[in-house]
């Protein structure tokens, strides 16, 4: 095994340089966050009763389960679609690639609120999609695309695809195409080359994209609220209700702590996998 490729060399001087910034981050960010997290153990009274509620209140368990399920499906869908998009981009000419990249980036800049409303309009009972399907004789009753879990999945997947594309694109662009040529030259057909060579080489990109998408999905709030029609409650929205409506800061803080711990846990896994790139020698 190799040592991590990070330079620890001139550490002392570097730390001095970033010290003011680090102080600012601690004062304005880390400290308030710690305060809020502490509420989970201290509000309404000191103890672990907020965490007990995880096991006693079935609603909470259900919300967590919904969140995990939706985030997992979103991740699977967006990484699969993102993989196809990134693969296409890598194999296109330079001009087409930059066009596609622009399109991918544009969707980054459209507000999540606007997109949710756009989906509501498009996929609603009387929206153009249902109208077209009915006109084509494919359906008798309008399909309930939105105001349910399906709507949430569509909205979230759509939002997350660019996040899946970018790490995959970076990974795929680092792969020497001659490696695939070599596989063909040695007698392997397209399918074998894909499963035995390309897929393993893009695994670091898939892992990075999946974790990124999953972590961001965990915090989704606007999309489930709008496209779920109030029927799909995810953790982030529940936290906001606890804070703004029922004023149960302790429960909100407990859930926030769980989310944060989950994210850090995944980040740790991510950092392990990022080094896979190094193990594979695909650091280009």
């Amino acid at each position: 095994m190799r040592l991590a490729g990070i330079h620890h060399g001139a550490g002392g001087a570097c730390w001095l340089l970033v010290a003011p910034l680090l102080g600012l981050v601690i004062a304005l960010y880390a400290w308030p966050v710690a305060e809020i997290l502490w509420l989970g153990f201290s509000d309404p009274e000191p103890g672990l009763q907020n965490y007990e509620k995880l096991f006693t209140r079935t609603a909470l368990a259900k919300i967590l389960w919904t969140t995990l399920r939706i985030c997992t499906i979103t991740t699977l869908l967006s990484v699969t679609i993102g993989y196809l998009i990134a693969y296409t981009m890598v194999h296109l000419g330079a001009r087409e690639r930059s066009w596609m990249l622009t399109l991918v980036l544009i969707s980054f800049w459209v507000s999540v609120l606007v997109r949710a409303f756009a989906w509501l309009t498009l996929l609603g009972r009387n929206g153009p999609v249902n109208a077209a399907l009915a006109a084509g004789g494919l359906i008798d009753e309008p399909v309930a695309f939105v105001r349910n879990e399906l709507g949430v999945l569509i909205g979230m997947t759509h939002y997350m695809i660019p996040y899946a594309v970018l790490p995959l694109l970076a990974n795929m662009q680092g792969i020497d195409r001659r490696i695939m040529d070599a596989s063909h030259n040695l007698g392997a057909g397209a399918a074998t080359t894909f499963t035995r060579i390309y897929l393993p080489l893009t695994t670091p990109g898939v892992v990075a994209a999946s974790l990124l998408v999953f972590v961001i999905s965990l915090g989704f709030y606007v999309t489930p609220a709008l496209l779920g029609g109030g029927r799909v409650l995810m953790v982030a929205e529940y936290v906001s209700v606890q804070v703004l409506v029922t004023v149960q800061w302790g429960v909100a803080s407990m859930l926030a702590t769980l989310l944060l711990a989950g994210v850090f846990g995944l980040m740790y896994v991510l950092s392990r996998f990022m080094r896979l790139g190094d193990v594979f020698g695909a650091r280009a």
Partner: peptide, 16 residues
């Protein structure tokens, strides 16, 4: 893949 020609590529193209 059907030609049965071996090839040593520029840069070798080993499977990393």
């Amino acid at each position: 893949e059907k030609r049965e020609f071996g090839m040593v590529f520029q840069g070798y193209a080993l499977f990393p």
